[in-house]
Design a protein around this nucleic acid. Structure first.
Lengths: 308, 308
DNA sequence: GACGTCGTGAGAGGAATTTTCAGTGGCACA
DNA sequence: TGTGCCACTGAAAATTCCTCTCACGACGTC
């Protein structure tokens, strides 16, 4: 149970978000507790552990396990955290929408926007709260010091893979992204101990990506998985698995949020890599910005970003 | 001791104030507890009643009496109230970072994460606040009814263009993304009044994208620009310009946030397009999810997302 | 079909909390 | 000064709450 091990009490992550982050990975009984809490977030304040268990149709022992999984030492501390949340109150009520709500065909654009915004913010928060920074740092160091980096991602994750390649390439990392299995496998086959490979897959179950990352691993590369499920085949395969959380379980807004979470993880890694050799990276970014600026019309005086 | 009996949990009165109000009427031992709490208001969160009693040099029974006198039914409820206060306190001071701050090479990963998260959330909010929903709706309707959709984006925006293509394609929109100028121009040349073209560029100044979108326009297509600057060449060229805001002006975290904002705009458009023909879109999403699931290992029972 | 793993609840065991009760000291009044 | 009342207090009993352990059953694997 060593997920978010470091700072249990970081304070930012609201209990509700934490639950949503963990819900997908929870067993049936556990998620019954989770859902009860999502619908009645203040229940723990009034109820004892046994009463809460009864309401959820389960046992006290399971509630304790539930709290542990969420990262609290026990029920009492969980209760305290919930109370602290409730004190915080919702800041922008107007905007906040029901949790995990899905969109209906008749929602006005206004509502769509609001729901989407909430879903995204919540999944970013959830990701920030659950990601293992230590592992990120390890990955960043590896990326900075390896001779080569392969990035695998197919389908919807191909764009993310490309994005990462783009960014890292710009700061002097010899990165290569592969969306095609055949080419990817060929590249994976020639990796070795001095290289690193990253597999990106939302579900963590994409056969092609698993295959490519697996091959890279047997070739000796250090392997990293980036998924939205922390116990996935891809994750188990890799040396390090970074999980981008997606709070809600069902369809609409959440599916889109997954991309944001993933991108967020990529952002983070990118920045941590930059930190490995800050001045050099910044110089390179500036250089590539200059190169690109030739392709801008009316090059603006203020500043040149690095992306198009 | 039936003073403020009515609303123990009215929320207005903080624990500290309550103690101060009651302190004068308290006996010596009681006020020892009170003073301890005034100097360490968060003590009850971590300590059990006996530990707290020990610290105050008194017994648990007295602490219970103390809580009663303050108007709480017992120690547990008192603890909850204290926690709620502490939550109310400094919102998320710990996490909130100076606005627009840039990252320094020495920031610990923790700080990088925090800064990044804040930057992202702020730009999402900003985008949601400034985007013109009416125009989004127009675009969505056009997308849904046009015979064909061209999407242009080069460099860093190519991944976004691909992402949009992917999504829309999945719901039956005949979308095509072009990252290469030559191919893109060729496609732009054959557009007409029944088609629509979207150009994506962070700066709104990317020469290639401007060129492609311009060509599409002269061919008669309805043109849309998606940029992060609302007065940009690309935006002026297009029939409709959707702006994804980026609050901070300077470099680091903001540059990354730009992508999130852009993606957010894409999400929104995607959802609005789905709404144009909800059931049909949903069916198509389901169908493509099924098709993809053959490429999953150990296909999970719960649900199949649509992305890889 | 045997085995291992995982999730679960029952119940034991141990804390934590509240209640009861008896001891102490202050104070008023005789 | 002595006596009795009363409020205050802590020890210990009583109760409730929480956690830990263990065994059972479901499920998947070999």
């Amino acid at each position: 149970m060593a997920q978010d091990p470091v700072e249990t009490a970081d304070g930012t992550l609201r209990m509700v978000e934490r639950i949503q982050a963990h819900l997908p990975q929870m067993s049936a009984t556990m998620s019954k507790i989770g859902e009860l809490l999502l619908s009645e977030p203040s229940a723990p304040l009034e109820l004892s552990i046994t009463e809460l268990a009864d309401r959820a149709g389960t046992s006290a022992a399971t509630v304790t396990r539930f709290c542990r999984q969420l990262g609290y030492p026990g029920y009492v501390q969980f209760k305290v955290a919930v109370a602290a949340d409730s004190g915080r109150g919702e800041p922008d009520d107007q905007w906040r929408t029901e949790i995990g709500r899905t969109l209906s065909p008749t929602d006005p654009p206004q509502a769509v926007l609001r729901t989407l915004l909430n879903a995204h913010i919540r999944s970013l928060r959830a990701t920030a709260g659950t990601i293992d920074l230590h592992e990120c740092a390890v990955v960043a160091k590896r990326i900075a010091t390896s001779r080569h980096l392969d990035i695998y991602g197919t389908g919807g994750s191909a764009a993310m893979a490309d994005e990462l390649e783009n960014r890292l390439y710009r700061i002097g990392i010899n990165a290569h992204s592969w969306g095609d299995v055949h080419a990817g496998l060929a590249s994976a086959s020639i990796q070795d101990e001095g290289t690193i490979a990253i597999g990106i897959s939302n579900s963590g179950r994409t056969k092609e990506t698993i295959e490519m990352l697996g091959r890279a691993r047997t070739s000796g590369a250090f392997t990293v998985a980036i998924t939205n499920r922390n116990s996935s085949p891809l994750g188990q395969l890799a040396d390090v698995c970074l999980t981008a959380s997606v709070p809600e379980q069902y369809l609409h807004p959440a599916d889109l949020s997954a991309k944001h979470s993933q991108l967020f993880v990529l952002d983070l890694i990118y920045l941590l890599v930059i930190q490995q050799d800050f001045t050099d990276s910044v110089n390179k970014i500036a250089a590539s910005a200059r190169a690109v600026s030739g392709h801008r019309r009316f090059a603006s005086a203020d500043r040149e970003g690095t992306a198009s």
